[in-house]
């Protein structure tokens, strides 16, 4: 019995000594176990996938242990609020500020409340589709039809990335046919499956989707009730051009480019067409030591200089897109201001 207790004591002491010892091994500001919370609660989605790619690369580069936790938007912000010691980061995409612009609950102004960090990848897949037998052959057809008084229902998930393209369409109708923009109506649904279902049920004329999720539907024979057709991919050609030539599934990059700006034009202002890149970036606690952000700048620069992570991203249809924190913040704020304009224009 005595032996046992002393054994336990030894084990416990060893543990207590070992635990801190292994977290303060050297003086790099990023070490030990780092948790990356993401603004999505799905491990099958693009946020998880992109974040895992970058987390693996970071683990290797920094000899630390990065782990991605798909906690969802509100829990991710809570976790970030709480931990200022540089052991918890967040990764999210444009939804983070779009949610705020659209006035969604639970979305604060990230530029004010947090430190916005490095961008690292783009998912160029955000798209709008119609059913294969739809009368609309192009985005312009949709805009014209709405302009001439036809009611067009667009299935989206309200309040963010899924809505921004719809807002742009509506804005384009407003510019070309002032006063007619309300002929374009949002059908508020949630997941991709319910957007597809809305089309099958005849409740929606146009749906928001993605190259990844809907590509196979576009290759179905026309007599299949599930068959769809791309109308518009919101990423611009200059983004899509960087994808692998093989494109996605059996649709080549060249085919995809037909649906993107400048081949498809949705006007944002008199001088500019609308386009939208869904960018993934880091978000940090505001009180966190700036050395950590600098170290991440450094580590990510090296990772992207090595070039391996870019290949892995392209294989999974992501576009590598690294910006250091300061530059990234500038870029995203600019982007936010642009979109704020069209969102406000629609509201009036």
């Amino acid at each position: 019995m005595k032996k046992l207790i002393s054994g336990v004591r030894v084990a416990l002491c060893a543990l207590c000594v070992a635990a801190p010892a292994y977290s303060f091994a050297d003086d790099s500001p990023i070490q030990g176990n780092i948790r990356i919370v993401i603004g999505s609660s799905s491990t099958g989605g693009d946020t998880y996938q992109a974040t895992s790619l970058i987390a693996d690369a970071l683990s290797e580069k920094l000899e630390a242990n990065f782990k991605v936790d798909a906690v969802g938007v509100s829990a991710a912000y809570r976790a970030l609020d709480r931990v200022r010691n540089g052991r918890t980061f967040m990764v999210f995409h444009d939804q983070s500020y779009l949610g705020n612009l659209y006035g969604q609950r639970g979305y604060d102004d990230i530029f004010e409340k947090y430190t916005v960090g490095q961008t690292f990848a783009i998912n160029p897949g955000n798209a709008y589709l119609v059913s294969k037998d739809s009368p609309y052959q192009s985005m312009q057809d949709v805009i014209d039809a709405a302009g001439h008084g036809e009611n067009i229902r667009v299935a989206i998930q309200p309040g963010g990335v899924s809505e921004i393209g719809y807002t742009a369409m509506k804005n384009a109708v407003r510019m070309q046919y002032p006063g007619q923009e309300n002929n374009l109506q949002a059908l508020n649904t949630g997941s991709q499956s319910s957007k597809n279902q809305a089309m099958f049920d005849g409740l929606a004329d146009v749906i928001n989707g993605s190259v990844q999720a809907n590509e196979q539907y576009t290759r179905l024979p026309a007599d299949d009730q599930k068959a769809m057709r791309f109308l518009w991919i919101t990423a611009p050609a200059k983004t899509l051009e960087q994808a692998n030539e093989s494109g996605m599934g059996k649709t080549s990059r060249a085919q995809l480019l037909n649906y993107a700006e400048p081949n498809v034009n949705v006007a944002m202002s008199d001088q500019q067409n609308f386009s939208f890149d869904k960018e993934f970036f880091f978000i940090y606690n505001k009180q966190m030591d700036p050395k950590v952000v600098a170290a991440m700048d450094q580590a990510l620069s090296e990772i992207f200089a090595d070039g391996q992570v870019q290949e892995k991203m392209k294989q999974s249809f992501f576009i590598p897109n690294f910006r250091k924190a300061a530059e990234s913040r500038e870029h995203l704020m600019q982007k936010r201001d642009q979109y704020r304009e069209i969102i406000d224009a629609i509201k009036q």
Partner: peptide, 12 residues
């Protein structure tokens, strides 16, 4: 757990 971030020590 806050004292030993992300190591599961709070649990153990």
């Amino acid at each position: 757990g806050q004292l030993f971030p992300n190591m599961g020590m709070g649990f153990l």
